[in-house]
Design a protein around this nucleic acid. Structure first.
Length: 826
RNA sequence: GCGAAAGUGGCGGAACUGGUAGACGCGCUGGACUUAGAAUCCAGUGGGAGCAAUCCUGUAGGGGUUCAAAUCCCCUCUUUCGCACCA
């Protein structure tokens, strides 16, 4: 017989709902704990990834509630964006309608699994009461000089018909649709995240984040120290500034490399005839897209511009080359090339027969130009470097930079790989940027009183190559808020990552219509104590959210420095080794599993199959194993309910207890300790569940219940009685039911966490493993308070040990308390 | 190429600061119950030798430190993830 999970789950979901136990209070005597799992895109039905993710959050939520915290676990929807727009087109509907429909389905499914969510704080990014504040934040960014518009080459996805940030391009493909990304020149809105680059490198404000995520963000920001050096041009007024991390090689600079986009090159080209070699070369490279240009196998190409620059440290003429391997976006967009000490420059110089000069020598084995097969990039001694000759290259960097600063030839500087965050999207289903263009006044912000700029409902969607908003004349054409003259609305909408950069704060005060949230409530709840989500958001979402949080702090809206104190990056759900997904055809529908085996079964399986940060490999058989486990617990209670009920809490510690029951008592205490430690310390739910299973096996090993005395029955009842409380974070429905069956009136989260009794965690007899020369030769059962000498004697007395030690000299005997005896022989 | 993590039975995974490798679960084998199946229960289950006690071997591969290594150190290989002409 299967246990009546259907009835039980419905029953408790209703009780939890009626009693509003997951509705968090904004003020409480209890300490607060904010558990947040990344909100989902409302795709319509939950998939196993959701179940896995939110089961982790819910286990933490319920455990923290048992611990007596005032816990907030909210839920919402990341509802704007491409997929929602495409979904609506596919269903010949409107995203406003389909999104709300999908949300309704998902909310029901969340409840069906019994997640302890505070629905009173639900947010959806596509609703005006939410996106109004996104627009408000845009204005704040603008007013603080952090939002600006510029024309630039952008990553353009033809499939999505929109712009992508660098972070959103993976392998030259769109992170969302896998379509090819090409370069397109457009006017775009940017957020000046680079202003916060330095602070984003500082992770001292987070309590516990995976090292991996910190490293990824650090690499992404890519800070490097170096020197800007100014080169004068020969016969021209202009100055070219280069950025280098190797100022110690400056005397070896024999050419300069510029990309064809460099403004100076653009100017030179205007003086060229269109059929000139130089012009043709630049045209060709410019038309190649950047992804291709920066691919690893692209060969370095270049052309001599015919112009020269003057090396400021020695006055030498250096050729200026235009090349395809220099990036306009990094550093100053110009490179001083030192072929002898940079591999790329070396290859280039070799190809085009450009002169080279050694300026750093190997301290022991000097080499000549003719011997060089590759650039010498290691440390060494400076040569051919004027007054710096003989200096060690490492030390000379500072000396040379300082000397250049004194002579105004250059200055020390810091460069970041991080670029500003392009937030413009040419799509309909997003948050409108609250800007109006007026012929007289230029860019004008929409006044607060007119927020939100509502998305027009009546638009033509479908396979358009243009932003659908452009075709809504009555929306686009509006009056200038400043002069009242004719104005046009900005038709770009914001990247959806903007919406998800502050939602965690909105949950603290989800219905505020005066502000995004009040400082009072935000300060009570923030930072999020435990954030849970996929590793795929390690750079983008998590960095944008940190940026936004720091910005909100600078606006005086929050007082914390970081949004997420602890971060857990959970693995994905796989089947047959591949990520579970509809498109791969290996998806398992949670609805079916819940209908057939119950929500508790799915949750237990998800948490048991692997530690949370690792992938979970789906297994039908494994899932049935979890079902079996819950059924075994159920039967135990059903069969012995009277014994358990009547003897629970009657154990006084007195009375004779048989050794098997002593073992059971030990198991009870040990399991409590183990489960608490696994949840609190490492969040290893898999081993916590394994410990409960083990304990259950112990309980089942007691069969002759009718022969137990009063004290033993009490031990038995206690061993059973502890199970619901330990199980609650993982399988809350069955746990509540069993808890109630045994006569408890409170709900489990009010029961407090179980405490173990140290005095029963002591064993009378201890097992020692006896090793001789590192090999196990026997085991020893001995009283726990035996002295070291007694243990040694007993170990040496073992028959099998004697066999090995007979007539041999024993050098020493090592005793590790309660573990092993190691005998060392000559 | 650079950076990070990881390699343990047929499978998912345990082993926390070096101290019984393989907990727990799945699968498999044998048995009980049953007309039969499902469910349940009992026993076994890294490999090899042996009736057995017991012994040998074993944590990607090779070396090392140690009384003792899955765990620490060095080298090699493989896999996954991130970055990739960043000057």
């Amino acid at each position: 017989m299967e246990y009546p999970f259907h009835k039980i789950e419905k029953k408790w979901q209703k009780i939890w709902k009626d009693r509003e136990i997951f509705k968090a209070n904004d003020h409480s005597d209890k300490p607060k704990f904010y558990v947040l799992s990344m909100f989902p895109y409302p795709s319509g039905a939950l998939h196993m990834g959701h179940v896995s993710n939110y089961s982790i959050g819910d286990a933490i939520t319920r455990f923290k509630m048992m611990q007596g915290y005032n816990v907030l676990q909210p839920m919402g929807y990341d509802a704007f964006g491409m997929p929602a727009e495409n979904f609506a087109i596919l269903h010949n509907s409107h995203p406003k309608i389909t999104t709300e429909e999908n949300i309704d389905i998902m909310r029901k499914q969340f409840d069906m699994i019994g997640f302890g969510l505070d629905w009173s704080r639900e947010v959806s990014t596509c609703r005006p009461d939410y996106y109004k504040w996104g627009q408000w934040f845009f204005k704040k960014m603008y007013e603080n000089g952090l939002a600006y518009k510029k024309s630039s080459f952008v990553n353009w996805c033809d499939e999505c018909q929109t712009v992508l940030a660098n972070e959103q391009v993976e392998d030259g493909k769109c992170w969302r649709c896998d379509g090819v990304v090409r370069q397109k020149e457009l006017e775009q809105w940017f957020f000046r995240i680079t202003n916060y680059a330095e602070e984003l490198l500082d992770f001292s404000g987070v309590l516990d984040w995976p090292e991996k995520v910190k490293i990824m963000q650090t690499n992404w920001i890519g800070k490097s120290y170096g020197t800007n050096i100014h080169f004068k041009l020969e016969n021209e007024e202009d100055i070219i500034t280069v950025f280098t991390t190797r100022p110690d090689t400056i005397f070896g600079c024999t050419f300069m490399a510029l990309p064809p986009e460099h403004p100076l090159v653009t100017r030179w080209l205007k003086q060229e005839k269109e059929d000139s070699e130089l012009y043709q070369f630049c045209e060709r490279i410019l038309n190649e897209d950047k992804i291709k240009r920066s691919a690893e196998d692209t060969t370095k190409e270049g052309i001599f511009s015919g112009r020269y620059a003057i090396n400021p440290v020695n006055g030498e003429k250096v050729q200026i080359w235009i090349t395809n391997y220099v990036l306009m976006e990094y550093g100053t967009g110009a490179v001083m090339a030192v072929p002898t000490h940079d591999q790329r420059d070396f290859e280039f110089a070799l190809k085009y027969d450009i002169p080279m000069k050694i300026v750093i020598q190997h301290p022991e084995k000097p080499f000549t130009l003719e011997e060089m097969k590759e650039a010498y990039i290691a440390e060494g001694i400076l040569v051919n470097s004027g007054k710096f000759n003989g200096m060690e290259s490492g030390a000379s960097q500072k000396a040379i930079s300082e000397w250049m600063e004194e002579n105004q030839l250059g200055e020390q500087t810091v460069t970041y790989r991080l670029r500003d965050w392009g937030i413009s999207r040419q799509r309909y289903w997003g948050n409108p940027i609250p800007i109006i263009y007026c012929e007289n006044c230029g860019e004008v912000l929409v006044p607060d009183a007119d927020l939100p700029v509502l998305l027009p409902d009546d638009v033509k969607l479908g396979k358009t190559t243009k932003n659908p908003l452009l075709s809504v004349d009555e929306w686009v054409n509006t009056a200038c808020p400043k002069c009242g003259g004719p104005g046009r609305r900005e038709t770009d909408t914001m990247d959806t990552f903007v919406d998800s950069s502050w939602y965690f704060a909105r949950y603290s005060d989800a219905h505020n219509d005066k502000m995004p949230f009040s400082r009072d409530k935000a300060d009570y709840w923030l930072p999020v104590d435990q954030y849970i989500g996929g590793i795929e958001h390690a750079v983008m979402h998590l960095m944008y959210a940190r940026f936004f949080h720091k910005f909100m702090r600078d606006l005086g809206m929050v007082s914390s420095d970081e949004p997420f104190a602890r971060l857990l990056t959970q693995g994905m759900v796989t089947k047959d080794g591949a990520k579970m997904s509809k498109s791969k055809g290996n998806a398992v529908d949670p609805q079916y599993i819940v209908d057939r085996y119950g929500a508790d079964t799915v949750r237990v399986f998800m948490l048991f199959a692997s530690p949370p940060e690792k992938d979970v490999e789906w297994s039908d058989e494994g899932m049935k194993g979890s079902f079996r486990f819950l059924n075994r617990i159920w039967r135990l209670f059903e069969d012995n309910i009277e014994i358990i009920k009547n003897n629970l809490g009657t154990y006084s510690g007195n009375g004779s207890v048989d050794s098997t029951l002593k073992e059971l008592r030990f198991s009870t205490q040990f399991t409590i300790k183990k489960v608490l430690e696994d949840i609190k310390g490492r969040m290893q739910f898999n081993t916590a569940i394994a410990a409960i299973m083990e304990h259950l096996n112990h309980v089942y090993s007691i069969i002759d219940l009718e022969n137990l005395n009063k004290a033993e029955l009490a031990v038995y009842a206690e061993a059973c009685g502890i199970i619901p409380r330990l199980l609650y974070p993982f399988a809350p429905h069955i746990a509540e039911e069993l808890w109630q069956m045994t006569g408890n009136k409170q709900l489990l989260h009010e029961s407090g966490i179980p405490e173990y009794q140290k005095e029963f965690l002591v064993r009378d007899e201890v097992t020692y493993v006896v090793q001789i020369m590192g090999k196990i030769r026997g085991k020893l059962e001995i009283s726990a308070n035996a002295t070291e000498d007694e243990i040694k004697a007993a170990a040496l007395d073992l028959e099998n040990v004697q066999k090995y030690t007979e007539n041999k000299k024993i050098e020493k005997v090592i005793v590790i308390p309660k573990k092993l005896v190691s005998i060392v022989m000559g």
